[in-house]
Design a protein around this nucleic acid. Sequence first.
DNA 1: ATCAATATGCACTCACGAGTGTATTGTGCT
DNA 2: AGCACAATACACTCGTGAGTGCATATTGAT
Lengths: 205, 205
Amino acid sequence: MQNSPFRNAAQKEADRAAKRDAVLRAAVRMFNERGFFATSLDDVAASLGISKRTIYHYLANKDQVLLECITIGLEQLLAAADDARAEPGNGRDRLVKFLRRYVEINMDDFGICVSRTGEEALSRESLPRYRALKKKIDVAMRQILTEAVEDGSIGPIDVKMTAFTLAGALNWPGRWYDPKGALTPAQISEAMVKVLMGGLDPRPN
Amino acid sequence: MQNSPFRNAAQKEADRAAKRDAVLRAAVRMFNERGFFATSLDDVAASLGISKRTIYHYLANKDQVLLECITIGLEQLLAAADDARAEPGNGRDRLVKFLRRYVEINMDDFGICVSRTGEEALSRESLPRYRALKKKIDVAMRQILTEAVEDGSIGPIDVKMTAFTLAGALNWPGRWYDPKGALTPAQISEAMVKVLMGGLDPRPN
DNA sequence: ATCAATATGCACTCACGAGTGTATTGTGCT
DNA sequence: AGCACAATACACTCGTGAGTGCATATTGAT
């Protein structure tokens, strides 16, 4: 299979995907740095040494650039939920696994983009897809919480409010995390999950 | 003192302040609804039945409109910290008081604006003031936490990470709170604080 | 070598929105 | 009455950035 057009076609496909990916990666970094609205596609193109027109060969418009970035981030979160649920141990173990990973994703480029971007940035057409993914994650979170409550490995908390509270706390690092700071994502994630699991009230021990 | 020019001058001042205030109130609502960048001052003016030029008689530019809105929100939070610290009871009581109020402020128009607005939206000139206020609140939060740890009314938590975790959780309602929803701010605030204080782990009781 | 398709750049249009110059109206003061 | 000043509107400039038409370059296929 030296010169089969198949392999070649696949190669082309891969090339194209790699370029598209590079655009998204450059875009998400600039979105996170300067904000979505303060970033022009001309800026993104310049940072890659290409022209804006080229970007439009891989992505339909600015809105789609953002939607793709967010989708990547959200899909990482979904994958984290699936992974956690496949884990052995009790409900609490799976929950902790999920939370730990959730925080870490929120300090990754695409995750940061998710936690920094509100609905206002997306177009009317992109919103349904965005909301659907968000919903899926919320459902997964509640499911994991419910299972943990049911097997008694965490206390009998209000699942809905707890899911909201956790989501807020876990998303926040996307706002202040500094890769050049002293703490690593793993340390931050561990400390935050500890606070959330243990609560502030003193524990008899 | 029927026709004293003093009263008149004061009256004028008050009129002016009231109008300025009305502009800010209209602006903050639209910022929250559609996002800062998607809101033009023409829109804000139209919603008040005035022309954009009038807005510029009360505020220097769009950046200042935003800064004022955020400042109002942040100052409410600062006031909440002061109030809480003046409260009787132990450290935990004061902390709970502060947290409860913090959440509620984040469901008020100006508070929502604070939690929805990132640094990217502000101009270089406005940032120092913004950051200074943010810092003050963070300091106050840590102070309250430290006092509670020291008098033993909450567990020996990591103050810095806890402050971050709390801030995230408490700010989140600004993103999803819907005034037309079933839950009142007081209910949400109570439930969230309960989750944070108690944690997820089961408590022997 | 040539053709078709894909990739890329250049230069443009177009809309929108921040901010302003100037004219007009209203209001209290003397 | 007339003056000074605040309030407000209208109509404008000007920059910026999304998106596009067209021309060119590159590359794989025959």
